[in-house]
């Protein structure tokens, strides 16, 4: 009985290891493995390789007022700077990670030119939902957000706009998600 249990354990770990090796072969997993691994038990260990993230992403929004005027861009700072304690305690890194994933997915989707899908993507809707909840400029009628990128820690204001969203009318009772 014990021998059988050992055999079963070895089989489970053996298959798991083979799947893990297969996962490392390409940047994106094969379709069957992607479907199979819905519990995230097979990881990709390419940490920062082959091409790492070498830019920062920044979120901005602006409003169209009732009189038709456009406000200036307001920078949304989703995260604060790293503290000396970041080696132990760095919760903001998760918001950064989420926003990087969002910006890269949206950028790829925008490049593919599929605008209707792009504007229904979970990332787009989540950012829109977040941005719509931010402070308004008195008589704001519609809101637009933009994602910009910068590449030099010494000059974080040297920004390049990656893309702007469409204008979204502001409704105090309803966000972008259906109830």
């Amino acid at each position: 009985m014990l021998e059988l249990a050992n055999l079963a354990t070895a089989l489970i770990f053996g298959c798991w290891l083979v799947l893990s090796v297969i996962r490392q072969l390409k940047e994106k997993p094969p379709g069957w493995l992607y479907k199979l691994d819905f519990l995230y038990l097979v990881g990709s260990w390419r940490f920062f390789g082959p091409e790492p993230l070498t830019r920062d992403y920044h979120l901005f929004y602006r409003d169209v007022l009732d009189n038709g005027e456009m406000t200036r861009w307001i920078r949304v700072t989703p995260v604060s700077s790293k503290t000396p304690w970041a080696i132990i305690w760095n919760p903001e890194q998760r918001l950064r990670r989420w926003f990087i994933n969002a910006a890269e997915a949206m950028s790829a989707s925008k490049r593919s030119g599929n605008a209707p899908t792009f504007e229904r993507s979970p990332f787009y809707l989540a950012i829109l939902n977040h941005v719509e909840s931010l402070a308004r400029f008195g008589q704001s009628r519609a809101r637009q957000f933009a994602i910009a990128e910068s590449q030099d820690i010494r000059d974080p204001d040297d920004l390049r706009i990656m893309f702007c969203s469409a204008l979204h009318f502001l409704d105090p009772d309803r966000g972008p998600f259906p109830a």
Partner: peptide, 20 residues
């Protein structure tokens, strides 16, 4: 604990909003 610190992100206006 870090995720708990970011509790606002899980609220209806947050980036980790449930419907998203």
């Amino acid at each position: 604990l870090e995720l708990l610190r970011l509790y606002r992100a899980f609220q209806n206006e947050g980036l980790f909003f449930w419907k998203g």
